[in-house]
């Protein structure tokens, strides 16, 4: 039997020097611009700010749109529309209403739901089956974590909080948020009494609130029904 050997491998001097140089260079890199800084530059018409915002959030925007629309082409169109619209009218985002990422998700979700409703209406008018939106199972199989590193902790917390919900409560949340259904529509869709749906929504939202207490962004000062 061969004798076990233990060897400490030294980093060659040339590699150590290169690594030190790389680390020094990295430490000289400026900190990434904040959303607020990028939005200020966007308002003054700097296209590179749009590129950075796109690089930071396009995966998220596309994923929300895809989750609502279940159509890759439509989700791409929606993603493009959201960012071009932001470019054309950057003042649509009002910082007093909350964080930029929340606003962006809200805009994407609302526009995607509008598109989904138009599509469903068209299908009904054309005599086809009214499209029933199914909740997509949560999975990280195709995730691209590097694209939203800044949000990874928050996202993990949200996913964990949602996954901890009982399946019936999770479903009402998903149908409301991703399918844009009212409680009455959820009741019809799931063949559940409306009172039960209301209770499930309340319990689910309360559990999410409790679970995400530490993750929540700063309070939003204004309360308004109108979504961006």
């Amino acid at each position: 039997m061969a004798e076990a050997q233990s060897r400490v491998v030294q980093l060659p001097a040339s590699l150590a020097a290169a690594r030190a140089e790389r680390q020094a260079a990295e430490s000289r890199q400026p900190a990434p611009a904040t959303d607020e800084q990028l939005l200020r530059r966007l308002r003054s018409g700097q296209i590179d700010a749009l590129e950075q915002i796109y690089d930071r959030y396009s995966t998220l925007v596309y994923s929300v749109a895809l989750r609502v629309l279940h159509d890759q082409g439509l989700a791409e169109d929606m993603t493009q529309e959201v960012f071009v619209r932001l470019w054309r009218r950057p003042r649509l985002y009002d910082p007093s209403r909350g964080r930029f990422v929340s606003w962006l998700m809200s805009v994407t979700r609302n526009r995607a739901i509008d598109e989904q409703r138009r599509r469903s209406r068209r299908l009904r008018e054309e005599g086809g089956d009214s499209e029933v939106v199914q909740a997509v199972p949560s999975t990280d199989r195709f995730d691209d974590p590097s694209a939203v590193a800044a949000l990874s902790d928050e996202r993990a917390a949200v996913r964990a909080a949602v996954e901890q919900l009982p399946p019936t409560q999770r479903r009402v949340i998903e149908l409301a948020y991703f399918a844009g259904m009212t409680q009455a529509e959820i009741a019809a869709e799931t063949s559940t009494p409306i009172g039960t749906v209301k209770t499930r929504v309340r319990l689910a939202m309360r559990k999410l609130r409790d679970a995400l207490e530490q993750t929540r962004p700063p309070p939003v000062s204004e309360v308004s029904r109108s979504r961006p």
Binding site: T59, S63, D140, F142, D144, M205
Partner: peptide, 15 residues
Amino acid sequence: EIADLIGLEAPLRRT
């Protein structure tokens, strides 16, 4: 605030 975070639950897809 909670509702605004729910979008983060969507499985991420590369563009």
